[in-house]
Lab assay of single mutants.
Amino acid sequence: NKFNKEMRNAYWEIALLPNLNNQQKRAFIRSLYDDPSQSANLLAEAKKLNDAQA
């Protein structure tokens, strides 16, 4: 399933972002599970926040 693969990839990328705190990571990951079709958008948002907090 395409969404499962995208979701799994996004999950690990988000989990490993160095500048997000655990609460932020959990919120993004919860959103991934709520709507796997938004994986790419959620990952992009997480990366933006990660960069902003660098």
Score class of each variant (00 low, 15 high):
Ile29Glu: 02
Gln53Cys: 03
Leu16Ile: 07
Tyr33Arg: 04
Leu32Arg: 00
Asp34Phe: 13
Tyr33Asp: 02
Gln23Lys: 07
Leu16Val: 08
Gln24Pro: 00
Arg26Ala: 06
Glu13Tyr: 15
Ile14Cys: 01
Leu49Ile: 10
Met7Glu: 02
Gln24Thr: 05
Asp34Tyr: 11
Asp51Gly: 11
Tyr33Thr: 05
Lys47Ala: 06
Ile29Asn: 02
Lys5Ser: 03
Arg26Asp: 03
Ala54Phe: 11
Ala27Asn: 09
Ala27Ile: 06
Lys5Asn: 06
Leu16Cys: 07
Gln23Ala: 10
Ser31Gly: 07
Arg30Phe: 14
Asn21Val: 04
Pro36His: 04
Ser37Cys: 03
Asp51Thr: 09
Asn4Pro: 10
Ala10Pro: 01
Asn50Val: 01
Lys25Glu: 00
Asn22Val: 11
Ala44Gly: 10
Ala15His: 15
Tyr11Cys: 08
Glu45Ala: 09
Lys47Gln: 05
Leu32Gln: 01
Asp51Tyr: 14
Ser31Ile: 08
Pro36Leu: 06
Phe28Thr: 01
Glu45Tyr: 13
Leu42Phe: 08
Arg8Pro: 01
Ala40Leu: 11
Ala15Met: 14
Lys5Leu: 02
Asp51Lys: 12
Asp51Ile: 12
Leu16Gly: 14
Asn1Ala: 03
Phe28Pro: 00
Leu32His: 01
Phe28Glu: 00
Leu17Phe: 09
Pro36Asp: 02
Gln53Phe: 10
Tyr33Ala: 03
Phe28Lys: 01
Ser39Gly: 07
Ala44Val: 13
Lys2His: 10
Ala40Asp: 06
Arg26Met: 11
Leu43Asn: 02
Ser37Lys: 13
Ser31Val: 09
Leu32Glu: 00
Ile29Met: 08
Ser39Ala: 10
Ile14Val: 05
Tyr33Lys: 04
Ser37Trp: 09
Asn1Lys: 06
Phe3Ser: 11
Asn41Thr: 12
Asn4Tyr: 12
Ser37Phe: 08
Pro36Lys: 04
Ala54Asn: 08
Asn41Phe: 13
Gln24Cys: 02
Arg8Asn: 05
Asn21Ala: 06
Leu32Pro: 00
Leu43Gly: 02
Asn41Cys: 03
Ala40Glu: 06
Glu45Ile: 15
Glu13Leu: 15
Ala10Gly: 02
Asp34Ile: 13
Asn4Leu: 08
Arg8Gln: 10
Leu16Arg: 15
Leu20Ala: 00
Asn50Ser: 12
Ala27Met: 08
Leu49Glu: 04
Ala40Trp: 14
Asn41Gly: 07
Asn9Val: 14
Ala27Ser: 09
Lys2Gly: 14
Arg30Ile: 05
Met7Thr: 05
Gln23Arg: 11
Arg8Ser: 06
Ala10Val: 09
Asn41Trp: 14
Asn1Cys: 11
Pro18Asn: 07
Asn50Ile: 01
Leu20Thr: 00
Ala54Glu: 11
Ala15Ile: 15
Asn50Ala: 03
Ala54Gly: 07
Asn1Gly: 05
